[in-house]
Write a protein that binds this DNA or RNA. Structure first.
Lengths: 226, 226
DNA sequence: TAGATTGTTAATCGATTAACAATC
DNA sequence: TAGATTGTTAATCGATTAACAATC
């Protein structure tokens, strides 16, 4: 038994949403079947990788024909657990929290935001994206009343760990974290961080390797509004 | 020569910003040295992995003592290219674009936003985070006047590819994409996508594996503001 | 000194890619 | 039928982990 819970096929899982997005477009365009090579071409992958990934969904293709687009879409949605909605609360209604609350597409990703919390009295009471913002101290009561799976953390770095602890205390199963902080939580809680610093780090290193270090002095023009 | 530009050590690169963040906190707390085991403990990594990662920065530790915190911080910043600012423009001033414009910490990540663009007349002319929003058709002229490395795409999925093409035409080197779309760009352009769908997919699969499928019906309580 | 911690060299592990028989 | 495309089995590749001598 592994000491730590270990997910295999993580790279494949990551690719699934991209396949799904593309397959939906193909379906709209009337494609009923698609070959692995065709999909691979679109993403710059090897066809064998696409076949291996799609095999995880349980859908089988037919030689000469390819894979059934509709079945694949359904199977990937199921594979990702997106056909099974989990409810979520959002904590931290700053500009990012506001942006997430305003996005009405999360239901397609199996997430339904049922409440939002913030401690700033200037924000509580407001309704954003149909969700009323409440003071954070009302969170435990709501979590007791309604089974909520997921907590979305969009507070500042300083407050993130504290909010994380609160969510853990309230028996949340998963945390979707947007604060640039490495949260510490018990092993049984799934913490998924969207780390912009990581993304910018990779972008920066890739740029440096492709083009050498930056060749554009920032000094050229200040913020043009100044 | 590899057909596709291939980055090695990508997993290590991804971990660097987390090390950096933690090391800075240690420095604030007065730590002058730190062992790989101590860092590993914090993140749940194996000490050898931390040693391997840190070795990439060129900093060498001393047996019995550990690694010099200050040197590590400097070396990681340099490794990530964050000591060398690249200028960027942002296209798409919706709620997410607004949130990014309002964030003043990007300079620490080697990015300086010099301009923002949108086609909505209700938005152009506004100043957000000290940046005036201009019509998109002014982008090429600005790109000619000021050397800009990076384009940040925060438009809708539908418009993302079009904006990407525009940035490519304007000789941008890198694209930081927040639209949930797999952009197609020439190989010499570095495209880094922040894919919330990917993140939600991984979160969802990890939750399903840890807890089985969702056990909380969404129906329990509607949006409480209703 | 003794022992903790490093850097290096080797072993393991998982993911990607290759090869190819099966089959529509 | 002929040939494109699949699923499977094997090989390669890169990343992680283990082992251990060097050293502060």
């Amino acid at each position: 038994m592994p000491r730590k819970f270990h997910i295999s096929n993580l790279p494949s899982i990551r690719r699934m949403p991209r396949y799904l997005h593309y397959l939906r477009r193909l379906a709209e365009q009337g494609h009923e079947t698609v070959s692995a090579a065709y999909i691979a071409e679109r993403f710059g992958f090897e066809p064998i990788q696409v076949r291996k990934d799609l095999a995880l969904t349980g859908v089988t293709g037919r030689p000469r024909i390819g894979f059934p687009v509709g079945e694949l879409i359904e199977a990937i949605v199921h594979f990702l657990g997106w056909d099974d909605t989990r409810s979520a609360v959002l904590v931290g209604v700053g500009s990012l929290g506001r942006a997430l609350l305003g996005y009405d597409g999360f239901d397609a990703y199996g997430i339904h935001i049922v409440a939002a919390f913030d401690n700033d009295p200037a924000v509580t009471g407001q309704t954003i994206g149909g969700i009323r913002v409440r003071p954070v101290d009302e969170l435990p009561a709501l979590a007791r009343r309604v089974p909520v799976n997921i907590g979305i953390i969009t507070v500042s770095t300083d407050a993130a760990q504290e909010v994380c602890d609160l969510l853990v205390d309230c028996d949340f199963h998963g945390i979707w974290n947007f604060a640039p902080a490495s949260l510490q939580a018990p092993d049984h809680v799934v913490v998924q961080t969207v780390d912009l610093a990581e993304s910018l780090g990779v972008l920066s290193v890739r740029l440096a390797r492709a083009f050498g270090s930056s060749d554009s002095p920032t000094s050229g023009e200040r913020s043009p509004s100044a």
